[in-house]
C-alpha cells in the first residue's frame, strides 16, 4: 500500500513537472489537449453533478430539520446545509461523480492504449507518456475540480432552499441570505483545497491503474474497476487527513 501511494506521488510529481517546470526547459506544454480534457472532465459533468448535489442539499435539509425541529431551531437549517455542503459534501460528492465519469475513463483510455501497444509506441517515438497523456489530465483535474465543487456547493444550497421555502417559512431570498451569512471564507477555502487534493488523487490513481494494465481486453476492465474503488477509498482517506488537519492544526 505504501509502495502504491509512493508510485502515485511519483506520477503526480512527474505530471506536475511537465505542467509547471517543463515549459521553461524547452518542453512546450500542449494546452489544446488539456483544454479538451477540461471540457470532458468539467463541462460535461455539469448536468449529472447539478442534479445529484441538488438532491443531496434537499436531503441534508430534510435530515437536518428532523433533528433541529426537536430543539425548535428549524431556522438553522440553512446554516447546516450551507456549512455541510461547502466544507464536506460539496467536494466529496463532486469527487465521487468525477471518479465515476473521468477517473474510470482515464484508466480505460490509458489501459486500452497499453493493450494496443500505443504506450510503447509513444516511448519509441521519444514522447513521454506522462507528458503526453497524464499532464493534460492532471491540469484539467486540478482546474476543473474546484470549479465543479463551487458549482456543487451552490446547487446543494439551492436544493436546501426548496425545503426551506416549502417547510421552514423562509422566502427564497431570506434562505440565500441566511446561507451566505453562515459561511466564512475559510469554509469555502478548505473545501477548495480538498478538491484540488482530490483532483490529484483521482488523476494519479486513474492514470497509474491505466498504465499498469496487463495484456488483453479483460485487463482493461480490471484496471477500470480498480481505479474506481481505489480512487474512492483514497479520496476518503485524503478527506479524513485534511479535515483533521484543518481541525486540529489550524482550528478551522
Amino acid at each position: 500500500m505504501l509502495a502504491y501511494v509512493g508510485a502515485l506521488a511519483r506520477l503526480t510529481s512527474q505530471a506536475a513537472y511537465y505542467a509547471f517546470v517543463g515549459p521553461f526547459r524547452g518542453r512546450p506544454l500542449r494546452l489544446g489537449r488539456a483544454f479538451s480534457q477540461a471540457m470532458e472532465v468539467g463541462v460535461r459533468a455539469l448536468p449529472v453533478l447539478s442534479l445529484i448535489t441538488f438532491f443531496i442539499g434537499l436531503i441534508l435539509a430534510i435530515q437536518g430539520a428532523y433533528e433541529l425541529k426537536k430543539f425548535g431551531a428549524i431556522h438553522f437549517v440553512a446554516d447546516a446545509v450551507a456549512i455541510t455542503m461547502t466544507r464536506e459534501l460539496g467536494p466529496l460528492i463532486t469527487a465521487i461523480v468525477v471518479i465515476g465519469r473521468s477517473g474510470s475513463a482515464f484508466a480505460a483510455e490509458i489501459g486500452t492504449m497499453k493493450v494496443n501497444e500505443e504506450i510503447d509506441a509513444l516511448e519509441t517515438m521519444a514522447i513521454s507518456p506522462v507528458q503526453f497523456l497524464v499532464t493534460p489530465k492532471f491540469l484539467a483535474m486540478i482546474l476543473m475540480l474546484p470549479c465543479l465543487t463551487i458549482w456543487a456547493n451552490f446547487m446543494g444550497i439551492l436544493g436546501g432552499s426548496l425545503f426551506g421555502v416549502l417547510k421552514a417559512d423562509f422566502t427564497f431570498v431570506e434562505y440565500m441570505r441566511a446561507s451566505v451569512s453562515a459561511l466564512f471564507m475559510r469554509d469555502i477555502v478548505t473545501g477548495l483545497i480538498k478538491s484540488v487534493m482530490f483532483g490529484m488523487t483521482i488523476t494519479a490513481v486513474g492514470c497509474s491503474e491505466g498504465l499498469a494494465t496487463g495484456q488483453g481486453a479483460e485487463s482493461v476492465g480490471k484496471s477500470t474497476t480498480a481505479a474506481v474503488v481505489m480512487s474512492i477509498f483514497l479520496v476518503v482517506v485524503v478527506d479524513l487527513i485534511f479535515t483533521s488537519l484543518f481541525f486540529f492544526a489550524g482550528g478551522i
Partner: peptide, 20 residues
C-alpha cells in the same frame, strides 16, 4: 540520450499501435 537515439529509430508494431 535514449530519447536522442530514439528520434533516429522507427518502430512498426505488430498491431500497428496507431492512436485511435
Amino acid at each position: 540520450d535514449l530519447d536522442e537515439i530514439r528520434r533516429k529509430m522507427g518502430m512498426s508494431f505488430q498491431s500497428g499501435a496507431l492512436f485511435g
